[in-house]
């Protein structure tokens, strides 16, 4: 078992810091489009702070070793990838099919992704029903009671 408190080189943290130096440079480049000096002075100061902090983190990780060893990730990666894809699909399909249909499908997919215990007939009936109830309740709460428009779907317009 790995020791969680021993210092290490914190490779992911170092990579993240390098990525954000890149992001900082990109943001700096965007400030050239700002014509008014008042618009870019503050953003540039923040970008410099970001880059300096990233350099400090990289320096600390490389020279002294930084952070703590991170526990290896439990659980399967496909579940997390599945969750992200399901959410992406929701954002893509919601304007077309509307909140209720896409919400119910999303809830169903997410139940499958997050289900760990063995499926029984009772659960197979109860969980989708709970999902449908929750989605419809949210729709009623937001769209009907609070008058917050939720997408009805361009397919049904």
């Amino acid at each position: 078992m790995s020791n969680t408190s021993a210092p290490n080189k914190d490779l992911p943290g170092t990579i993240l810091a390098f990525i954000f130096i890149g992001v900082g440079c990109l943001a700096w480049w965007d400030t050239f489009d700002m014509g008014d000096s008042d618009s870019y002075v503050f953003p540039r100061a923040v970008i410099v702070t970001l880059i300096v902090c990233c350099l400090l983190l990289i320096g600390r990780n490389i020279i002294w070793g930084g952070g703590k060893n991170h526990k290896p990730l439990d659980g399967s990666a496909w579940r997390r990838i599945g969750l992200v894809l399901a959410m992406l699909g929701t954002a893509l399909l919601m304007p077309v099919f509307g909140f209720i249909i896409v919400g119910m499908v999303l809830f169903g997919v997410l139940i499958i992704i997050a289900m760990f215990e063995p499926w029984t007939r009772k659960l197979a009936i109860a969980y989708p029903l709970i999902g449908a109830t929750i989605v419809i309740s949210f729709y009623l709460l937001f769209a009907v009671l609070l008058n917050v428009t939720l997408p009805t779907g361009s397919l049904f317009d």
């Binding site: 919400g103 999303l106 139940i111 760990f116």
Partner: peptide, 15 residues
Amino acid sequence: PRAILVPLILILSVV
């Protein structure tokens, strides 16, 4: 159960 909690958090987040 997490099979309900996770979808609930995400539906709430989307709405």
